[in-house]
Design a protein around this nucleic acid. Structure first.
Lengths: 232, 232
DNA sequence: ACCTGAACACCGTTCAAGT
DNA sequence: ACCTGAACACCGTTCAAGT
């Protein structure tokens, strides 16, 4: 069978772009950073050093595609963790847990997604696709908080103005983000059971969205104190 | 006046080590990252490309010295912010605010201090002096929480076992760390008044250490809800 | 003891040239 | 349209040689 010139049968194996993203993601995962060279990525994909420039403007652009892949993993993980959970507080906690878990499973990927490399800085804007994929993941958390607010489980005012909801989401998100960063950056110190610390931090945030009153009436001292007590 | 050969009058201007640290810190601050070359640092200090190797093992080692300088800034800032405050909750809030403020003033320096560059990874351990300087800053926050615990303002169990205290510190620290990271990485989205968001997040953490009961009795719904309400 | 200059083995990116 | 190979202007780090 001859090759059919009518189907141009692209030079490489059909989709060098995808192959490069896969190679870069593998390198991020193996080496736990992105200091590897673009030439190394090309080598892995079996092409010349300059071939990637047919598909990406520069190294940063390739890394952006990797980050998008990471956000899709996160989105899928969040959806999987949340579906089937009727209780909103449970869904909220599951959501936070998923963030931390992705970070622990692949710290470098997590850092790439949320870190300064692809963030607005030095004149370069955050790549559009990265911002979009990131927004998707954030919106899942936001939806859960809105659900809790409308059902009255969470003490977050609802209404036409989205600010309170955005603020509540931001607070919870920043807490879980910091938690993840400290854990993956090994800054937990002598905290022996990291998993317990994670649960305690999540409990504090849950209290935060619930408002103190409910938590106090059922437990007298709030989630933080109880969690702390359990571990003492 | 002749140079006195008895006082060896070191080659350069006396303290190249310090000059290199200063140049590197200036570059981190100006360029807001540490992708500048070691050769550039040497150029700024007016020495040859290889001169730095007389004082630092490699580029990472120089960056470690910069991070130590950053932690000293943080420590001084924390001490200044806290002294004169009798009220422990006020001191706690002032402490968290200082973290965020340093991050906002010099994002790259903050990232260098807490980020993966100088963290245990790829076989390289966190440099001892960095770990020490970082521990100093953390211990200030820890002391405040202990003060609150012994005086009964905070609902953190005290006792011979330091775990609950370490855990409470870790939770508050991780929240403020995530807050700072999201703010400096420009991931706050459409949150117009970032300063308000910061205050709200701090309030949630304050509730966390206080335990929900006290907060609820004075404000009915906890700090998060009230802060959210103010901004609605 | 501290510094220089040349050298090695790399980079990211560009660009003419090929198919 | 997509890829190669050579080239440019850099790196971090080492090392003999100088003072």
């Amino acid at each position: 069978m001859k090759p059919r010139p009518s189907a141009p049968a692209p030079y490489h194996h059909g989709d060098l772009r995808r192959a490069l993203i896969a190679a870069a993601l593998a390198l991020v995962t193996e080496e736990q950073d992105w200091t590897f060279s673009l030439r190394e990525v090309a080598r892995r994909a079996g092409v010349s050093q300059s071939a990637p420039y047919n598909h990406f403007a520069d190294k940063r652009d390739l890394l952006a595609a990797v980050a998008v892949a990471g956000f899709h993993q996160l989105r899928d993980g969040l959806v999987a963790a949340v579906t089937g959970l009727d209780d909103t507080p449970d869904a909220f906690a599951a959501c936070l847990r998923t963030y931390v878990r992705l970070g622990m499973r692949n710290p470098a990927l997590y850092r790439l997604m949320f870190g300064p490399e692809l963030t607005e800085s030095k004149g370069a804007k955050r790549p559009r696709e990265v911002a979009e994929a990131g927004g998707e993941a954030k919106s899942i958390l936001e939806r859960i908080i809105r659900d809790g607010a409308t059902s009255g489980v969470f003490a977050v005012p609802t209404g036409p103005n989205g600010q309170p909801l955005a603020l509540a989401t931001f607070i919870a998100w920043s807490a879980v983000h910091g938690l993840t960063m400290l854990v993956i950056d090994k800054l937990t110190g002598e905290l022996v059971p990291v998993q317990r610390a994670i649960e305690a931090a999540i409990a504090v945030q849950l209290d935060g969205v619930r408002g103190g009153a409910r938590a106090a009436s059922t437990r007298q001292r709030g989630a933080a104190a109880s969690a702390v007590e359990r571990d003492g």
